[in-house]
Amino acid sequence: MTLPTFAEFAAEARTHGFDEVLERSWAPDTELATHSHPFDARALVVQGRMWLTEGGQTRQLGPGDRFEIARDVPHDERYGPEGATYWVARRN
Rank of each mutant, 00 (worst) to 15 (best):
A11Q: 14
A11Y: 02
E12W: 07
A13W: 01
R14D: 03
R14V: 05
R14T: 09
T15L: 15
H16S: 06
H16E: 14
G17H: 08
G17T: 08
F18M: 13
V21P: 07
V21N: 09
L22K: 14
S25Y: 01
S25V: 10
S25F: 05
A27Y: 06
A27I: 02
A27N: 14
P28F: 06
D29F: 07
T30C: 03
L32N: 07
L32F: 04
L32R: 14
L32Y: 08
A33H: 13
H35R: 14
H35E: 09
S36R: 12
H37G: 01
H37W: 01
H37R: 04
H37V: 02
P38L: 07
P38A: 10
D40V: 04
D40Q: 10
D40F: 09
D40G: 05
A41F: 04
R42K: 13
A43C: 12
A43W: 06
L44A: 10
L44Q: 12
L44K: 12
V45R: 08
V45A: 08
V45T: 08
V46M: 06
V46R: 12
V46H: 05
V46K: 12
Q47Y: 08
Q47G: 04
Q47P: 01
Q47I: 00
G48T: 01
G48F: 01
R49M: 03
R49E: 13
R49G: 01
W51H: 10
L52S: 06
L52C: 04
L52E: 03
L52K: 05
T53V: 03
T53R: 12
E54A: 14
E54Y: 07
E54R: 15
G56D: 11
T58I: 03
T58A: 11
Q60D: 12
Q60T: 15
L61Q: 05
G62L: 03
P63R: 15
D65V: 02
E68L: 02
E68R: 13
A70I: 02
A70D: 13
D72E: 14
D72V: 01
P74V: 04
H75A: 06
D76L: 10
R78V: 00
R78Q: 01
R78Y: 00
R78E: 00
Y79V: 00
G80T: 00
G80Q: 00
P81G: 12
G83C: 06
G83K: 07
G83P: 07
A84D: 01
T85H: 07
Y86C: 05
W87E: 11
W87K: 13
V88Y: 13
A89E: 13
